[in-house]
């Protein structure tokens, strides 16, 4: 037997994303953000997207390209402080923004990927964040119900993969990538180095291939992936 080959051209992978889709995007700041997949999403131009990402990158980068192109209807995130355009669009009502505490956002995505419907936590109890959430008592402790967060698509950046989509991330470029890879109906991974199957030791795989639908090779890394000069 041999494992299926999931490599595909970037334009075909992104062409599946239509108007109104929900799209999870990996990355915490620059590391792990799939800039090439985002750029192709801007080129193809589907509108009215719900974007789910830890942050909104910085002005002029990544998610900001989608905001600038007017493709985003809603952003589900934990922090957008480095993107002035995102804050302005939120304040002027051009996009809806839903905030979750960072670890709650991660866990909502994780439980969706695990095939469960939500979890109960005391995070945010007694603050404004608890408003509108359902309280549940388990074993005498009361917490808030946090629903699983699932999406139509996940756009992932990995350092290495094989042609089956076994993914390996580098350092802090891991962040939300393995979580979103599990939580979407359709997962597209852009990969810096694609190896033949068998060249990633089974113990070294971070995201197993069954979670990945398409693997897109990055022929070279544009400058946006580099160290940010401040």
């Amino acid at each position: 037997m041999t494992l299926p080959d999931k490599t595909i051209a970037i334009r075909h992978a992104i062409a599946k994303i239509g108007d109104g889709a929900s799209v999870m995007i990996g990355g915490f700041g620059v590391p792990g953000t799939p800039f090439c997949l985002i750029k192709e999403l801007v080129r193809q131009g589907p509108k009215n997207l719900t974007i789910i990402k830890n942050d909104a990158n910085e002005t002029g980068m990544g998610v900001d390209w989608l905001l600038e192109a007017g493709q985003v209807a809603k952003l589900i995130t934990s922090h957008i402080g480095l993107n002035g355009r995102a804050i302005k669009m939120m304040n002027e009502g051009e996009i809806k923004v839903e905030f979750s505490p960072q670890g709650i956002l991660a866990e909502r995505i994780r439980v969706a990927g695990a095939g469960t419907m939500g979890f109960v936590t005391d995070i945010g109890m007694g603050t404004d964040l608890a408003r509108g959430k359902t309280e549940i008592t388990i074993g005498g402790k009361t917490g808030l119900l946090e629903p699983a967060l699932q999406a139509d698509f996940a756009l992932v950046h990995a350092a290495k993969s094989d042609s089956f989509g076994n993914l390996v991330y580098a350092a802090t470029a891991r962040n939300f990538n393995p979580l979103i890879a599990m939580a979407a109906d359709f997962t597209i991974a852009e990969v810096e180095t694609i190896l033949p199957v068998g060249h990633i030791p089974p113990d070294a795989v971070h995201t197993p291939g069954p979670f990945v639908d398409h693997v897109v090779a990055l022929p070279s890394l544009p400058e946006v992936y580099g160290v940010v000069k401040r």
Binding site: S78, H79, Q102, I123, G124
Partner: peptide, 14 residues
């Protein structure tokens, strides 16, 4: 200043 809480809530609470 309304950037979202990031990880602050969980750090402060736990």
């Amino acid at each position: 200043f309304t950037p979202g809480a990031g990880g602050a809530i969980e750090l402060a609470q736990k």
